[in-house]
Design a protein around this nucleic acid. Structure first.
Lengths: 199, 199
DNA sequence: CGAATGACCAAATTGTTATTTTAGTCATTT
DNA sequence: AAATGACTAAAATAACAATTTGGTCATTCG
């Protein structure tokens, strides 16, 4: 039942953080949803921040799980990386908590929201970095600094999706994919998937 | 003397906007610095915003002038583009007004500061877009959508400088240059300057 | 007895009202 | 006719009151 209570609290907190964001979620609120006295929360978690980090950790694992499923697929490497990025950003824009945190950061600028989103980004970068490293080891990829490579990859993909949409009309998925290959992959892949046909 | 007064006002405004930002600059302040009655300002400019736009326009012209000087140089195209981006971002990080506006946007979120910086960015994108178009016409560059190309170029360069520094230690200029070529230019140039030597 | 609890408190947040500042006007002066 | 600065309405800021909230701990319960 001790474990039961802990789970109740985590579930309640997850629900509330996703629904109201970090700041607008109160410990009283969580206790109420979890049907638990407020003091009980503090027997499992030192403070609000620690409880939040527990939830965040779950989200990170969930994201990695999705990426793992993608990278386990038998596909050419360049396809895989593209799909991981795609799924990750898709995940971020679908997952209620991540979305709520983005909004909170925009609207109120809660520092904890910023930190959490940075952490998500950082985890994704680390993940891709590892994928690149292993692809290099397998010889699928030209040598290079995997940290810089993953960073550029992420930034480029983000530019073509999120950033582009801030100024212009969204690009369709095919254009994004093609552009991503044309302007980036081409420079690093050992085997070029799209030959330049002098369009 | 009418022109004289106008210049006095513009100079005073430029000084004040660069020193205190948009919001913290008052019309009284400008009048005082310009040694002019406040009413006089309104015989030349309809309001604060219009006066600010006059200053901004000057900054934009100044930036374009720097870029023009760079692109007039007799250099291979890839060198030119790199240097234009470099000069432009350097300019933005050196120019007092642009810096102050960035700070103001971060700290207070003044909408006018955001708009102004967007305008600077937009002008730079348009400029590069034109450069790319003319390089394509000359056959120095593979065909492609110059808008997407300039956007990616800008974002990539910005990623390697500003964005990278938010997470990691700054990259040195040579690494930036090399990375920029390796991961981007290579994919679009007709003549590859750095041959991959299987490092 | 130890785990759970909710009344309690200091600190932070929010709501409210009073005060000051500021963009823009316009009657008067130069 | 151009320049000015006292003036005003609106906005920003400060000062203060009222409420909320994270965290504690003496008491209760199983």
């Amino acid at each position: 039942m001790s474990l039961d209570r802990r789970k109740q609290i985590i579930d309640a907190a997850a629900k509330s953080f996703a629904l109201f964001g970090y700041k607008a979620t109160t410990m009283d609120q969580i206790a109420k949803i979890a049907q638990v006295g407020k003091g009980t929360i503090y027997t499992f978690f030192a403070n609000k921040e620690e409880l939040f980090n527990e939830i965040l950790q779950q989200v990170i694992l969930e994201m990695k799980h999705i990426a793992d499923r993608e990278s386990a697929e038998q596909r050419p490497f360049h396809e895989k990386v593209f799909r991981i990025l795609d799924q990750a950003l898709e995940f971020r824009s679908r997952h209620e908590l991540a979305m709520k945190l983005s909004q909170e950061l925009r609207d109120v600028g809660t520092p904890m929201a910023k930190e959490a989103l940075n952490r998500l980004e950082s985890e994704l970068l680390t993940y891709i970095e590892a994928q690149l490293q292993s692809a290099m080891d397998r010889g699928e990829l030209a040598q290079g600094d995997p940290r810089i490579m993953s960073f550029i990859m992420y930034q480029l993909y983000r530019s073509l999706t999120t950033e582009w949409n801030k100024i212009y009309d969204p690009l369709d998925k095919d254009t994004i994919k093609e552009t991503f290959y044309k302007y980036f992959m081409k420079g690093i892949l050992r085997v070029t998937p799209y030959e330049s046909k002098d369009e």
